[in-house]
Design a protein around this nucleic acid. Structure first.
Lengths: 118, 118
DNA sequence: GGGTAGTACTACGTCCCGTAGAGAGGTGGG
DNA sequence: CCCACCTCTCTACGGGACGTAGTACTACCC
């Protein structure tokens, strides 16, 4: 899939947190800590949509951007990708299971239960 | 942690598959498909140990390299790192659980069971 | 003592990403 | 009607990571 850079991730975070598509200007306004040129934001949005992380639709002359997938889907995919790197998926999964904290193990257990029931 | 490049990963794969530390020359001999200069292999081994993926010990004038951690540990860590990217760990975990195939769900379940017993 | 092996250091091209300017083409206010 | 402005697209530059390798030096074996 290819990872994201730091600014790219910040921008995805903003868009993931929103429930409506945003224009470049709006995204720029939401990045408070950094003082970025408007074109910088536009460039990154463009790259992100080129990479398939965002979809965009016209709104007058402007584009409105929104995530192509949810953050959870993105994270889950990253995790699966990591898992694909191993030769021994079982060992890696076992190790992963041991590494998650108690509460999270509980979540996993519950999700797996529901799976089983279906 | 930072990811690995393609050649770096190939070399890690070779070392992970081995149970004894190897010299640069030995690693080079085990990369059959590519015809790399010996110095290339040495450079990459050096970078990998600088990054903490390998440890090395002297053997005469040569260095012997071995992985600092198992491949499973590496993969598990990558997965945890991906998980850290989300704001909602539960949602991501649930999604992940749904995404793994049946056999793997079984593995996870078993690992979690054992955890519970401890 | 010359080939071989091994090291350390340096280097170059490429690609990704953060960052942004230049230029083009609408758009609304005075 | 023209100017200021918004937004777009295109192009670019600098830094860092990585693949790749050359060079220069040392040590060892025969």
């Amino acid at each position: 899939m290819k990872g994201l850079g730091e600014l790219e991730r910040s921008i995805m975070d903003i868009l993931w947190a929103q429930d409506t598509p945003l224009t470049a200007r709006e995204v720029g306004r939401l990045i408070e800590d950094r003082d970025l040129a408007p074109t910088t934001v536009m460039t990154v949005l463009d790259r992100l949509s080129r990479k398939g992380f965002l979809t965009r639709t016209r709104d007058g002359r402007a584009w409105r951007y929104q995530p192509a997938a949810s953050r959870d889907a993105y994270v889950a995919e990253l995790m699966l990708e990591a898992l694909d790197l191993t030769g021994d998926r079982d060992a890696a999964l076992t190790r992963f299971a041991r590494a998650v904290s108690g509460t999270e193990a509980e979540i996993l257990r519950k999700a797996l239960m529901e799976l089983e029931e279906e």
